[in-house]
Amino acid sequence: MSALPRLSTIFLAAITTLVAVLLYSPLFVPIVSSFFTISHGNVDWSSPTLSTYVTLAENHDILAALRTTLIVGVCTVILSVVSGTLLALYYHGRRSGRSILQFIIFLPFLMPPIISGLALLIFFREIGLERSLLTVVIGHTVFVLAIVYRTVLMRLQSMSRTLVEASYDLGATGWQTFWRIILPNLSSAMVGGAILAFALSFDETMITILVTGTQSTLPVRLWAMMRLGFSPDINALVALILMFTVLLCVLAARFLIPRQVATERT
């Protein structure tokens, strides 16, 4: 890259900065404005305040929605990590029909959420399953499964085959090899996948709206609030969700690139 002339380096830096600003500046607006009061359409910059957060904390609808979101998220994570890991192990050990399996797992993630949501809605109605948190969890699991599956599979494929062979060679049974060698080496990928799954479930709106019963999750609640008109505590809610999501992504990245593996490769 150092071979590039100085002028084009400056040009590229300018473009990069511009893109970054365009991408990220809208995110800062609600964060900044969540700390100030707005009256008559004007932001009062003189007195930073946490009052929007207080209002938010007193909003019982929001708190209920947050609780629902967490319940759905945890259930989705458990279901998707278990089934995603099993699918990855199955896929890894299989010789034939691999591309079909891959396609089936990825389809719900790649399809427009409204299609997945409608398909699930029709399916639930056909089998007579009432819309509830259960249907939301199933919907989310179907949606995030591909991510967990992919994360675990990639770790599995980067694991040296000889690790498993060495375990058998040293006298271990298949069960011992799974618990003592395969699973510990997959664990950080599973945690990383779980965090990503949680982040996706946390933000998921379209499928949730279609398959939920009476309870709403946080994004759905937020959407409902927006329809009624803009209130300042929305800024606070957006800011919180944003920070939480960023935190999850940072955590996920940490687990997906474990230090031990990183040093071994160098």
Partner: peptide
């Protein structure tokens, strides 16, 4: 089966368990 044979292998890539 491999896990009953009284032989042990030193693998080319050592295959040490990283964890």
């Amino acid at each position: 089966p491999i896990n009953r044979r009284p032989f042990n292998t030193v693998f080319q890539d050592y295959a040490l368990f990283p964890h």
